[in-house]
């Protein structure tokens, strides 16, 4: 299994994402924002960071990078894509996912271990979780407040497309405590907190994030 990790100018978490992919049992393939070639990968992770300096809006400029043209096309035909943090923002700007991420309600950049509940285990990124599992992984962002209109929110909820929800106090003002969502097909997932920083207790708060990276292997091999 080859899982690509895109590096944009300003990406920060591409190396941790690649390490997490290897820890999950797949090969990590480096993809470059300016190269439309996906090098035969089976899935793609858009990592966290501040691509293009977050200029204009988070993810607004990355969305037009050459590599994104290929990713959008493949995602629309079913390739699994996981966007973490800035990657989630890019997926929303690309219209692969509905809604948008806006500035945290409290204005502050947050960096803290956060409890989230996994609410949908049918996506290729969450199959190795138990339904309702509560996990602790880092949340670190300034623009993590998930916003969408009432109609979109109702559709996300009724179609089971909220894949993860914050547990406890709402950290950033996200509607319905949403930490992560999927597209209608389920192959594209956006997640605000960072599972790639929590795959080994030596370097993270927990190893609770690892199943995101083993799931993709289970889902693809199980097919």
């Amino acid at each position: 299994m080859k899982v690509g990790v895109v590096t944009f100018p300003g990406s920060l978490d591409d190396r941790d994402a690649a390490r997490a992919i290897r820890a999950g049992g797949s090969d990590a393939i480096a993809l470059w924002h300016d190269d439309a070639d996906l090098h035969g990968v089976d899935a793609v992770i858009l990592p966290g960071g501040f691509s293009y300096g977050d200029y204009l809006r988070c993810g607004a400029i990355s969305r037009f990078a050459p590599v994104m043209g290929s990713i959008i096309e493949k995602a629309n035909s079913g390739m699994p894509v996981l966007g973490i943090c800035n990657g989630f923002q890019i997926l929303c700007e690309s219209h692969l996912l509905p809604g948008a991420l806006t500035q945290n309600q409290g204005l502050h950049f947050l960096c803290t271990p956060q409890t989230i509940r996994i609410e949908n285990t049918s996506t290729p990124w969450t199959t190795d979780f138990k339904q309702g599992a509560e996990i602790v992984i880092p949340l670190k962002n300034g623009e993590g407040s998930f916003q969408c209109d009432d109609q979109t929110l109702a559709a996300l909820e009724s179609e089971g497309r909220v894949i993860a929800r914050y547990v406890g106090e709402n950290p950033n003002g996200s509607r319905n405590l949403i930490a992560g969502i999927s597209n209608a097909r389920g192959n594209v997932v956006g997640l605000m907190p960072h599972p790639e920083h929590a795959i080994d207790p030596l370097t993270g708060p927990t190893a609770d994030g690892l199943p995101f990276f083993t799931s993709i292997l289970s889902a693809m091999v199980g097919k």
Binding site: T102, Q103, N104, Q105, G106, L107, S145, Q147, G173
Partner: peptide, 14 residues
Amino acid sequence: MLKPEILDPQGKAV
């Protein structure tokens, strides 16, 4: 401009 229904924390801080 942000739509009126979207929270604007920067505007609130100002």
